[in-house]
Amino acid sequence: MSSLLAFPGQGAQQPGMLHQLPDEPLVRLHLQQACEVLDEEVLALDSSEALRSTRAVQLCLLIAGVACAQLLIARNAAPDYVAGLSIGAYAAAVVAGALSFADALRLVALRGELMQNAYPSGYGMTAIVGLDLGTVETLLAQVNSPALPVYLANINAPNQVVIAGSHSAMAAVAERARASGAGLAKPLAVSVPSHCPLLAEPAWQLQQAFAQVPMQRPAIHYLSGSSARLIADPERLRDDLAGNMCRIVDWHSTLQTAYERGVRLQIELPPGAVLSTLARRVFVQGTVIAFQGARLDTLDALLRQEVSLRS
């Protein structure tokens, strides 16, 4: 039996999410370090107004994920695997020991700026639930054009995907999806068209900045949310992180890979529990729990039980 720490992506953010973190010395230390690296008060980033910024959202997700994961590890043993959806991959890489927290903060700040500057308005992402992947791909092909760009972005479950593109293009696909029997076609709280070719240029710019950042071989198994494969080589991991903003997220296959490799405990780092809902469809045996809303001693007990079963 193995354990997985899963880090959510953009869309999971909540107002006050940094203020709601456990009042623990290690958490406060990470908040302080973030303030020093970014030269700003990071607790100002989680207000409703501030979270309209892609940069603020991504920084909050990084800080919350890393701080809480390191808190769990300090109280218990390290997990066997880490994985992150989109921006969550950066927190996963930090916790795996492949990327320093300081470098991740600087890269994520740049990542958010590049993404929001490329598409300041008129674009986003939409979730479609109740249709299979083939049907959604057919609908995308009917709408996608230079004037109405729209692409597949996330595969979250066999009948749950996310598309990205212009608002008008996504609305056209959503209308067709509902007519085809979709139970839900809902815009997400994401203001940029992530995980599609529209972000190829910002991804290339981030790649240039990434070239100057040292990467290490991960000490904890790192599962890519894009390829659903383990990555140990530092250069491949660098490419995975820098390019994930313009690559499809295959989270369903990532969970399947984890389960096939013996993972029976998934802990979702804050905020929220979206990844826990998705994991329960794959982890037919085992335990899935979200950090947010759980007691620390409950999480401790689950991790200790997993370690004892492993040894």
Rank of each mutant, 00 (worst) to 15 (best):
S3V: 13
L4M: 11
P8S: 05
A12D: 14
Q14R: 15
M17S: 06
Q20C: 12
P25N: 04
L29F: 13
L29Y: 10
H30E: 01
L31K: 06
Q32I: 01
Q32L: 09
L38A: 04
D39K: 12
D39C: 06
L43P: 00
D46L: 06
V66E: 10
C68I: 10
L72I: 07
I73Y: 11
A78S: 12
D80A: 09
L85D: 12
Y90I: 00
A93S: 13
V94A: 01
V94C: 01
L105V: 02
R106K: 15
M115R: 04
Q116N: 05
Q116I: 05
Y119M: 09
S121P: 00
Y123I: 04
T126V: 02
V129S: 02
G130K: 03
G130R: 03
L131Y: 05
L133C: 08
E137G: 00
T138I: 11
T138V: 13
L139W: 10
A141K: 12
N144Y: 08
P146Q: 03
Y151M: 01
Y151G: 01
A153N: 08
V161Q: 13
S168N: 12
V173N: 06
V173K: 10
E175F: 07
R178Y: 13
G183V: 14
L184I: 14
K186F: 09
A189Q: 15
V190P: 03
V192N: 06
P197M: 12
P197F: 11
A203Q: 06
Q208T: 13
F210W: 05
Q212G: 08
Q216M: 13
Q216A: 14
H221F: 04
L223I: 14
R229S: 08
P234G: 05
A242T: 07
A242W: 01
M245K: 01
M245V: 11
W251H: 07
W251N: 11
L255T: 02
Q256C: 13
Q256T: 09
A258Y: 08
E260T: 12
L269T: 03
L269I: 05
P271D: 04
V274D: 12
L275R: 11
S276I: 05
Q292T: 08
L296Y: 07
E306M: 14
